[in-house]
Simulated scan of single mutants.
Amino acid sequence: MFIKNRITDFEKEICSILAQLAYHIHPEIVQRIQQQNRKEFDCFMELFSDRVEIDHYLFDGSACVFPGIRRYVSARGKKNAYNEEYKAIIDDNTFPRHIWCFLANGKTYNGPNWKNLGLGEFELAHVFTHKESEIDFEKQFFRCVREDLYPYGNFSCACNVVLLPKGTVRPTDNSITIKAAFYKRYIELYGEAPLNGRRKFNESRVPDWYDELLWNEPVLPEKWESNIEKLLKYRTKRIQGIMTKAP
Rank of each mutant, 00 (worst) to 15 (best):
144 C>R: 15
169 V>W: 00
177 T>G: 10
179 K>D: 04
179 K>H: 08
177 T>R: 07
186 Y>N: 03
157 C>I: 00
145 V>Y: 02
182 F>Q: 01
149 L>W: 05
177 T>N: 11
168 T>W: 11
185 R>W: 03
179 K>A: 09
159 C>Y: 00
170 R>H: 14
173 D>E: 10
155 F>C: 10
151 P>N: 08
152 Y>F: 15
160 N>S: 09
165 P>F: 04
156 S>T: 15
180 A>G: 02
169 V>H: 08
167 G>P: 06
173 D>V: 13
148 D>W: 13
149 L>V: 13
149 L>T: 13
168 T>G: 02
183 Y>F: 14
177 T>M: 07
185 R>G: 11
169 V>A: 12
143 R>M: 12
186 Y>M: 12
167 G>V: 01
186 Y>L: 14
162 V>W: 04
152 Y>R: 09
158 A>I: 15
155 F>Y: 15
169 V>E: 09
176 I>C: 00
189 L>W: 02
162 V>H: 07
185 R>S: 09
152 Y>T: 10
162 V>E: 05
140 Q>C: 08
145 V>R: 01
173 D>Q: 14
189 L>M: 06
154 N>V: 05
179 K>Y: 07
146 R>D: 15
188 E>K: 14
153 G>F: 05
144 C>M: 11
153 G>R: 06
141 F>D: 03
170 R>E: 14
143 R>H: 15
175 S>C: 11
168 T>H: 11
182 F>G: 05
147 E>Q: 13
165 P>G: 04
187 I>G: 02
178 I>C: 09
